[in-house]
Design a protein around this nucleic acid. Structure first.
Lengths: 151, 151
DNA sequence: AATTAATAGTTGTTTTTGTAACTAACAAGG
DNA sequence: CCTTGTTAGTTACAAAAACAACTATTAATT
């Protein structure tokens, strides 16, 4: 099983990105799945509402580039578990404003602290400058506009 | 929709990694899906065989960290399309040696060149040193042992 | 040797995802 | 108004992934 070819899968960025993403997802999953029975899109929605306080499904989808059907299902489950409350917009009755219930807030705060320490754990493998560059490059690859530095 | 919280999803590594991985996967998918009707695990198997010449399903799974059921189904499809041939190991009749047929080789060479130019296109957004560091960090995050440099 | 355990690979069943079609509400142009 | 087009969100169906159970073969234990 020795190489007969100069191409290396382990250098191919889409492969590497997927492998790294899968590995880190799997580890972080332990927190939201075991403790709250959530799915990936559910914690993402939860986090968006935790961070921004109130959003519509569309706003979440646009910001996180998650398809509306995924949002719809995630919101349905979060609402069923009383983590999220929904209220129609009076001006445009097509859209719904979502926000966390107290139980949702509690879950968010708990998971956020898990996320922060897991992120720190990943970052600890590198120097701060390296991590900053990594985040910058990943944002670039993910098509996320750089957050304005408050300088 | 303004932030009420200091935590930023867009800095959280698992989120960033997933977003970047998904984006690049989706773009590269166009090549193997449109041209060959392949699935992600199918091109991965194809590439492994293209690179290493001959492997068992287990070896592929170990190296790429793909679960054996995924390998099994990917191999079944590749074999049905005559991209891969299978032969039992005479010493251990549980395992099968897989290799590319000429058609498989042709598909591999085609996709490999697509992969190389797509990778170059991604890499072009950064300096060579940055890209080298990115690959290094991703390998580290993915738990891939660094390839020995021939120095 | 006979039983038990381990390994390579496959198959079946359940969850999740992807895609498309749908409803309801609003907007714009004639 | 009233047809046509858009948008927010849901639902239904098809494709794919996850997980568990299975077969066949080899290895280990007694």
């Amino acid at each position: 099983m020795t190489e007969k070819d100069d191409f290396s899968l382990q250098d191919f960025l889409p492969f590497l990105l997927n492998r790294a993403a899968e590995d880190s997802s799997l580890e972080f999953q332990a927190h939201y799945k075991n403790r709250y029975g959530m799915l990936r899109n559910e914690w993402r929605v939860l986090f968006h509402l935790g961070i921004f306080g109130q959003m519509t499904a569309k706003e979440i989808g646009d910001r996180a580039k998650i398809h509306k059907t995924k949002i719809s299902r995630a919101v349905a489950k979060l609402a069923a578990r009383r983590f999220v409350s929904r209220s129609r917009d009076e001006n445009d009755r097509r859209s719904e404003h979502l926000r966390l219930t107290p139980a949702g807030e509690a879950a968010y705060r708990d998971l956020r602290s898990q996320a922060q320490s897991y992120d720190a754990q990943l970052a600890a493998r590198f120097t701060p400058a390296e991590v900053a560059l990594l985040r910058h490059m990943l944002r670039q690859l993910a098509g996320i506009e750089e957050a304005p530095t408050g300088k």
